[in-house]
Design a protein around this nucleic acid. Structure first.
Lengths: 228, 228
DNA sequence: CACAGAACTCAACGCCTGTAGAATTCAACG
DNA sequence: CGTTGAATTCTACAGGCGTTGAGTTCTGTG
């Protein structure tokens, strides 16, 4: 019955398998990374990703199953912690902070890790599953990176302080484009923020009155609502 | 023709105006604030907001026109800058940082300002219009708050550094619930972060090699995609 | 009391979403 | 050459979205 719709001429990608290796799988993954980075999990659509990859939406579903699985496949783990750890470790104890900041800024310049980070942060703000991923990543990456150089009893607290400053830097620079820090050169940012991280890692960060950790004085923040 | 559907018994809110003052306008605004705070602009739905307010979706539209206008009405301006300014100004020059942090943490505990801040941040991450609102707010609020005490040529740079640390604190504590900083008491956070803000405001934040501002060494971050 | 307007709901439109099943084309192996 | 299976598209479903217009009930003013 193969009655071709002979009228509609231009490059009608007809149904069926293509010849040769198409690399479609990776094209979809790339498009997904970009879309998730630009719009976040909820904002990105399978149809949009498929269009970017020059492919039918159903193919995305065929390869990756659900949107959630596609997301996980696209962002994976933005950083190899051991790599960061190595660079930080070879710095002198006085250069810990500046080295840390410089390394992280470098990761945000490289396109793949930048897109993965953007996707993770943009999604985590409204998507509970992405929150878990980002939290797990920040905890393990930063905590592991500093574990070699700080064995305080306050190590976890220090790690979360570092995380808060770096997260804020990311949001201000990459998401909000808050001037002038968004356009500042790497050296300027390192000079300004490095000492902060240095102090969080090795300085005095405890209230004078309190020595130990006292958890649970705040009600934990509520979840971001039910999944939609 | 008024043939009532007499069968369906339970509390059928019948059509038409209610008696007395219903306070529906404010109920909608409250529900909107909560929904925007929990799910962000795109995640919140007019239908959901209407349901929370016990009202028909069309009424929301009747009062506020479009979703965008409802958002603007719901978040308005989370903080009166002069109020912050006053509290910061009456602190000694040595307590600038800790006072600042303590004041901001207080704002995040109060339910109304917390919800407005959450709504703004959750929305700004994927919505271009909310980005503009948040950026404008951060710039004007923080810059104005420190304008009285810092007249550096670096004042704007200092302001954006403070903003980055406070934004990061907000994200870590309120959005990601990153432990242990998410559950830490106010005093602990103030002791840890206060000195950072103090240094950003009054300390040395410039690279040794560079004196003036050198803008534009980075490509500005791209927009979050076209509005959908 | 009549009448304009505000508050309020119902039902529906058009659009977009994630997902599913069936059909078609190609590659690889026997 | 025939068969099996992967790659790819088409078509469609069911549901949610923002928004609209018409209809109903109440309030306030003259």
């Amino acid at each position: 019955m193969s009655e071709r719709p002979a009228s509609s001429g231009r490059h009608t990608q007809r149904t069926g398998r293509r010849s040769g290796e198409s690399g479609t799988r990776e094209a979809i993954l790339d498009a997904a990374r970009t879309q998730f980075a630009e719009r976040g999990y909820d904002g990105a659509t399978i149809r949009g990703i498929a269009a970017d990859a020059g492919v039918d939406p159903a193919l995305v579903h065929h390869f990756y199953g659900t949107k959630e699985r596609l997301f996980v496949a696209a962002v994976r783990f933005p950083v190899v912690p051991s790599e960061v750890l190595a660079r930080v470790a070879e710095a002198g104890p006085e250069q810990l902070g500046t080295t840390f900041v410089r390394t992280v800024l470098g990761l945000w310049e490289a396109s793949e890790t930048r897109e993965q980070s953007l996707a993770l942060v943009r999604s985590a703000v409204t998507n509970e599953c992405a929150v878990t991923m980002l939290r797990g990543f920040v905890e393990s990456a930063i905590f592991r990176a500093i574990a070699g150089v700080v064995q305080d009893e306050d190590a976890r607290f220090r790690a979360s302080l570092v995380a808060s400053q770096l997260l804020g830097l990311f949001v201000a620079r990459m998401l909000l484009c808050l001037e002038p820090i968004a356009s500042a050169g790497v050296d300027d940012v390192v000079a300004a923020v490095g000492p902060t991280v240095q102090r969080y890692l090795t300085g005095d960060v405890r209230a004078a009155s309190a020595a130990g950790v006292r958890p649970g004085t705040r009600d934990p923040c509520r979840s971001a609502g039910k999944p939609r």
